[in-house]
């Protein structure tokens, strides 16, 4: 699995406009709605589901990274977006640090394997400090897309 398999390039956000956890999630889900990747009529339900998952424990997994996610029956394939916040969002992360990089994932209920594969791919790429640093410095959706493409071409990571 590669970023191109699940990250929607039309929904990339180079600068989240908010610093609040719930608003950040809403902005990312909205971006996927606007890109036509999720049904806009399901916006509130998806946001609610992502927030409910966060209540079980923050997906702020440390090192300035969060992977907010949920299952939702309105999607047929795993779909996701990447968002960057240069100022950082308080996400109640494991290490107490603000989050600069977000990978939001929405999975069909019957495809847990794809979710695990996506997490593995994201984690594998983010272990490369250069990839992380460049992604945090992204100034445009095009910058993000270029970095994702380079990662998919094995230009980062072990």
């Amino acid at each position: 699995m590669k970023f191109a398999d699940f990250i929607c390039r039309e929904a990339l956000l180079a600068e989240l406009s908010v610093q609040d956890k719930e608003k950040a999630i809403r902005e990312m889900v909205q971006s996927l709605c606007q890109a036509g990747k999720v049904d806009a009529a399901q916006f509130d339900d998806i946001v609610k589901a992502v927030l409910k998952r966060e209540e079980l424990g923050s997906t702020g997994i440390g090192r300035g990274v969060a992977v907010p996610h949920t299952k939702h029956s309105s999607v047929e394939h795993l779909v996701g977006t990447v968002a960057v916040s240069s100022r950082g969002v308080d996400f109640a992360s494991l290490d107490g640090e603000v989050v600069h990089l977000f990978f939001l994932l929405i999975s069909p209920p019957d495809r847990p394997g794809d979710h695990l594969r996506a997490l593995e791919y994201i984690a594998r790429q983010l272990r490369d400090d250069t990839f992380c640093r460049f992604l945090k410095q992204a100034k445009s959706p095009q910058d993000i897309q270029q970095l994702l493409d380079e990662a998919d071409s094995n230009q980062f990571g072990p």
């Binding site: 997994i61 090192r63 990274v65 997490l119 994201i122 984690a123 983010l126 272990r127």
Partner: peptide, 12 residues
């Protein structure tokens, strides 16, 4: 202690 490293192990 490192969630990214653990997720990268990929354990189905």
């Amino acid at each position: 202690t490192d969630v990214l490293q653990m997720l990268a192990l990929y354990v189905p």
